[in-house]
């Protein structure tokens, strides 16, 4: 079963009178439980595609279905709900909330979901233990290394059991050892919990880890390779 269906997705950015074609008609299906990397050079449109799949941005044309929801027809509030309950995000720059501790950062999404404080706490500590951050619950982002911050970001992305995790260049700011550890951890989550992971990346290591590699060039799917 496909968890993401993109049909003829187009996106144009307008800068004054100049039109930049970011996506020129992308067709892509992503199966549930997939571990997929969108690769391509800078400006190829991979981050734009990831943002559109995640409901962070609208496509100008085409249809996008995520987890059975036709998101191109949703308004901002509906998209916010979809993101809250179905999609987890991991960003290149970690994007943790600086005034909250690791534990509170992980709890934050559950707070928005209305999960009770006791359950929030127990689920957040469990997931932080899973990503190897036991004992660092009460450290704020500034007190953690880049790798540890990105692990908190992953924990935040998966703590509410989303169907999909979208990771935009998750290893870009990490050294190779931290990056590999993070990818191993995400692959384990994918295998254990069945969460679909979609990466956008230039990183060879991420491409090697992915079970499916989709090359995007000039706003189109140039190559779609499923590994054995």
């Amino acid at each position: 079963m496909n968890i993401v269906e993109c049909r003829d997705v187009r996106k144009i950015y307008r800068q004054g009178k100049v039109e930049v074609y970011a996506l020129r008609g992308v067709d892509l299906s992503i199966e549930e439980g997939g571990f997929l990397a969108l690769a391509g050079p800078s400006g190829s449109g991979k981050t734009t595609l990831l943002n559109i799949i995640g409901g962070l941005d609208y496509a100008d044309a085409g249809s996008i279905s995520v987890n059975g929801n036709q998101i191109d027809r949703m308004n901002q509030t509906e998209l916010a709900n979809l993101r809250l309950h179905n999609i987890g995000f991991v960003f290149q720059a970690y994007n943790l909330i600086p005034v909250l501790s690791a534990l509170e950062n992980v709890e934050f999404v559950m707070l928005l979901q209305g999960v009770s404080p006791t359950e929030r706490r127990s689920r957040a500590t469990a997931i932080l233990d899973d990503v190897g951050l036991d004992g660092l619950y009460h450290r704020r982002p500034a007190e953690l290394s880049g790798g540890q911050q990105q692990r908190v970001a992953v924990a935040r992305a998966i703590v509410s059991n989303p169907s999909i995790v979208l990771a935009d260049e998750p290893t870009a700011n990490l050294d190779s050892k931290s990056g590999e550890g993070l990818l191993e951890m995400m692959r384990e989550m994918n295998e254990k919990k069945g969460v679909t992971f979609i990466f956008s990346t230039h990183d060879k290591m991420v491409m090697d880890f992915a079970r499916r590699l989709v090359q995007i060039r000039d706003g189109l799917v140039a190559e779609d390779q499923v590994k054995e």
Partner: peptide
């Protein structure tokens, strides 16, 4: 940060 809040699903 507000962008992050929105991305995580916080309503306006």
């Amino acid at each position: 940060e507000f962008g992050l809040f929105r991305a995580l699903g916080m309503k306006p």
